Simulated assay, not measured.
Amino acid sequence: MIDTIIFDLGAVLIDWNPRYLYSKIFSSEEEMAAFLANIATPDWNEEQDAGRPLQEGTDLLVAQHPHHETNIRAFYTRWDEMLGDAIEGTVEILKKLKDSGKYKIYALTNWSAETFPVALERYHFLSWFDGIVVSGTEKMRKPAPAFYRLLLDRYKVTPKKALFIDDNLRNVLAAEKLGIKSIHFTSPESLKRDLEILGINRSH
């Protein structure tokens, strides 16, 4: 019997994409794609999500790619331009789950502690959670088992009574190894179907 639902945030509830910023900076799709694939990579960004200071991460990358200094520094100085809209279909599901009163609702997110306050201010639904565990604050991130256990221990969640929702299959598999039933998020519509299959009632 599931009594706790744990959401990822980026690409599940919040549309965050570096392309929103860098499409303004680069004149061609090819240049932008090469920069995001080879220089300002997801692996580099995840080090900031895991607690490395933004300034330190930026300076390290500039030292490696000095000819891209302006573009690299834009990543965090113009970071808010990477934030898109809330993913309304998922927000609606979150609201129904919250309003049902049947579940504790938490978020487990890979996010820099320095940029997360921007999201808190922008997206009102982040106040609906019973708790949010932010990787940058905790200095660890998904898919590290210790990061999941931190949430479980902090909020006294029983793994077999929890459901985890994430768009990254790597993170889903890590949760499942800890005995947490998980859904690989691809769209609000598929999430709605998956919840119905699990018998999770989203209405009052």
Rank of each mutant, 00 (worst) to 15 (best):
A113S: 10
P53F: 13
K96M: 10
G131T: 13
I165N: 04
A146W: 11
A63L: 10
K95T: 14
A50M: 04
V91Q: 10
N168V: 00
E189Y: 09
G131L: 13
L94Y: 11
A146R: 15
I183E: 00
P117F: 15
K102W: 04
P18Y: 14
R170N: 01
W79F: 09
L94H: 09
E114I: 08
F147K: 08
A119Y: 02
E88T: 15
S182P: 00
E81R: 11
H65L: 07
L21V: 11
Y106G: 05
T41Y: 09
A37Q: 09
L36H: 05
N168P: 05
E138L: 09
L178Q: 09
D3I: 05
K102L: 08
E121P: 00
K98C: 01
D130W: 14
I105C: 02
P145Q: 13
E189S: 10
R122A: 08
A11K: 09
N45I: 12
T77G: 07
A144P: 01
Y103M: 11
W111R: 01
A144W: 05
L169A: 13
T109K: 07
D43T: 15
G10L: 02
L195Q: 03
E47L: 08
Y20G: 05
L54N: 09
A113W: 06
M32G: 03
H184N: 09
H124A: 15
T186G: 00
E88A: 15
D130K: 08
Y103A: 10
A33F: 06
Q55H: 11
P66M: 12
D85S: 15
